[in-house]
Write a protein that binds this DNA or RNA. Structure first.
Lengths: 193, 193, 193, 193
DNA sequence: CGGTAAGCGAGACGGTACGTCCCGTCTTCCT
DNA sequence: AGGAAGACGGGACGTACCGTCTCGCTTACCG
């Protein structure tokens, strides 16, 4: 009925839940995590979880955002290709770690839970996409890219294939993919003399 | 223990299962389909499903493959851009239909079931990818694209963004995305004079 | 893993289960009662049954004990023959009622479930046997029976034939059997002058 | 629809079924025997069992009758007490063997299957009871027992307690029980001088 | 500053679905 | 036609979790 009073929330329980959820999601995949297991591992009543999160997906989303954060940073050395290579490689590395099954599991969860889908798009993906587009726009101003290029589309063409392999597993992730993408996409966007 | 004898399989039951699974997956999403519901709707014992498929995902994969099939066709009018535009638009249309929740649900399933992931990659995605690469390679021979272009990477750069939006929902699917991708990716791959 | 906390047991559910089990066992026989049917009739989750009873037999045993109870009472008018006749007749009447199929069904259950067998013997049969032996012993002290008579064996010789007919159905149960037993067994145990 | 033609029955299959059923019933108890297990062990199709027996109980009853047979024999040395002691001891021994769980299991089966109950009573128990009553009647004619004794009731008082312990397990079976019964029942039936 | 209402741990509850075991029937192919 | 084999529709099993609920217990705020 009435929403819980956030001021009286137990910080101890909150942290224990996030940590338990993280640990379980990383080592058995998000799909196989259960609220009961999280509660048990955190030493917490189930109700305490249901009080603060509407669903398993929402909780895991919080945990993920908490855990990723910094990957959206975008270097700026004046050389777009180098900067993108660095950032795309960092993303690839993350997706090669144990962490990947957590991420993919949460994306799976999002397919059946609109709230998670929205949270994921807005709080994680859009947030990471901003700096990428900004970097490409700056490259445009610097004359590294043609002025008529649609930077949003370019960012998608560069990053989507990494997610594609992460989720669809048609080929392994790796730096070679990053190189190939830069060659195929970014090269074609340079000014023609 | 012993594998079932495929020769004695009931064609009636087989078809009823595939149809029931299809109907349920389309209208409530793959994640919310249960084996019990499929069995009930098909008028079949649960064991008959378990006898022939190892998991819900494996069954849904069969259904999906059965249902998609033709989308991998690739036109060839001599104009790559037009051909890709047509095919990418067809894919986009499919992903805009009710059918999408089935597809995304199955991809979700694949995140926690290696066998489904493999089946999906090999029997659906790779199969669709072949003709795309072939069409790009022909364009290369025809001089429509530069000779040094990595066609596999190009195909990924064109199609992955469609899947990206399908699964991550950062932006709606649509023909405008197709146009933007062709501009950003394919245009850059033309021979430079 | 951990045993349930009996203090928090729902009295409502407990009673509903016992009543449902009783009703089902009486009207379709213990063998044809299923845990699912009990749960459904009681408006209870199956787990609630499994939480408190290890098996169908254990539950039915509780129900039976609950339902019988008073049959172990033994009158004492000073005339052993009359007292035994009264009590044996009461047992016979019980075994002629609808209740019989419940009892026989549970004894059947006991043949394949050691725990039920033990419970039945200790909580029902031994409990009923005590007063019978005590009454016979008193008759001995009163000089109604010879001093060297083995009262336990006598009690068995009197009551076992009733169970024999109940379970093996070689002949119908009835008061005439009671009379015959008293004539054949008890008469022979009187002091010889 | 039409009953099977007994003349064309396969003797090999028939015997294999009886043997398999026997072996399984002895070593896991009649309740845990399944038609599928019998068929598998006998190397026989399930239908072959269903063709010739209406139920598991009916099959097991056939097996049991086949296996017991001789226990109904009653010696006659001229001394009833000695003869009964010998025969009751033989029955007790049988009930102490591995064979007991088969027997008790079948009696359990009979509680829910009228046909089995009838078969058991008529083909096994009554058949065994006849000679016992006959022996007691002869003892009466010989002056070993009083003339007014109801021999049927006496036979029941002597044998029922053995079944009682077999089925209800209030006390272990043993020769001491036999002695006690003879003392308590038979002794009282002798002529009084 | 003592009472009381909130959050908390624990876990029982009514349910749904799981994947398995057998039932008794049926179909096919073989002898 | 009987038999070996085993797929079929079905019912129940015992288990895992779901999300809700009810218990004390502890803790912080408020009259």
């Amino acid at each position: 009925m009435t929403p819980p009073n956030a001021a009286r929330r137990s910080e101890r329980a909150h942290r224990a839940i996030l940590e338990a959820a993280y640990a379980l999601a990383v080592d058995r995949g998000a799909a196989k995590v259960t609220i009961e297991a999280i509660a048990a591992r955190a030493g917490v009543g189930k109700q305490t979880i249901y009080r603060w999160w509407p669903s398993k997906g929402a909780l895991l989303l919080d945990v993920l955002i908490d855990a990723v954060g910094a990957v959206s940073e975008m270097p700026d050395t004046g050389d777009v290709t180098a900067d993108l290579k660095a950032q795309m490689t960092a993303v690839t590395r993350l997706f090669q770690s144990d962490f990947a099954r957590f991420y993919t599991g949460l994306i799976a969860e999002a397919q059946g839970d609109e709230a998670v889908a929205r949270g994921l798009a807005e709080q994680l993906l859009d947030r990471a996409d901003g700096p990428r587009r900004a970097r490409l726009a700056k490259a445009q101003r610097d004359g590294e890219l043609r002025a008529d290029v649609d930077v949003a589309a370019a960012a998608e063409a560069l990053y989507a294939p990494i997610y594609y392999r992460l989720l669809l597993r048609t080929a392994p992730l790796g730096v070679d993919q990053v190189h190939a993408l830069l060659d195929v996409v970014l090269d074609g966007l340079r000014p023609r003399e």
